[in-house]
Design a protein around this nucleic acid. Sequence first.
DNA 1: GAGCTAAATGCAACAATATTGCATTAGCTC
DNA 2: GAGCTAATGCAATATTGTTGCATTTAGCTC
Lengths: 140, 140
Amino acid sequence: MVQDSIRILQAQGHKATRPRKLVLEILEEMDRPLSPYDIQGVLRQRGKYLNHVTIYRVLDILCSLNLAHKMLSSGGFVRCSLDMAEGCHRFMVCQHCGAIREFADKELCQGENEFARNFGFHAEHHHSELAGLCSRCYRK
Amino acid sequence: MVQDSIRILQAQGHKATRPRKLVLEILEEMDRPLSPYDIQGVLRQRGKYLNHVTIYRVLDILCSLNLAHKMLSSGGFVRCSLDMAEGCHRFMVCQHCGAIREFADKELCQGENEFARNFGFHAEHHHSELAGLCSRCYRK
DNA sequence: GAGCTAAATGCAACAATATTGCATTAGCTC
DNA sequence: GAGCTAATGCAATATTGTTGCATTTAGCTC
């Protein structure tokens, strides 16, 4: 999966560098929103080091290619778990354990688009976050 | 409108203080996302002063009562323009001029809820931001 | 594999945003 | 208007994000 992302990076003319691989690995492994400093901390625990500026820059690129997303409610970053859902990013955010699940749905977007058009608004990107409880936390 | 919000504040046991009135006035008047420091700046231009900590605290309360919302994409705050839409907050955000328009729709929420339930997720709050162009900016 | 070059990183400094504890002030009730 | 408690202001600090520049390195050419 990290490999897939790296390939996409390269296809866009970006280099396959150590910091980029490391950030992708961490995002993949942790699977919950991490701030740039969180990522730096995880790496440090493993005896590895990246400057936080570098992490910011890596995340910028990943987000611009939709390989990662910035969770708006927490400010943390998660890797993108969908193949192609340009312009439609919806997330279930468990308020208890912090787990994230991404999804996309054309009909939802169309519904929102129609609503917007009634106000003369032309929507390009959708970003929606549902706060609630994941199945595991709900059972408790 | 500021008066309405103040009444709601008081009904919840909060006091109707000068900082709270001032912040509500600014939010009402500007009608676009403002950071706490933006608000402080506007006030300063008018020869008034509020400590930024106070502004943060006022905004916390307003958000907790749904009298204001934090725009996740920009981090700024807008006043709530809907009467009652608990748990459903959707915004059109003009990428060109920054204007905000809030809306809510039960069907959209139900759609998202159903989708979530298929993953065992129980949604409580919806926050969605549509980036695009408002009617005025689109015409250009 | 050595050399080249643009891209990427690290560093340092700084800017912006956000939080905490505590002394002082000011709404509200009577 | 006095008293009580919530709310504010202040100071200090923590967290998050940005910029410019010197140095390094990935990926290309030969």
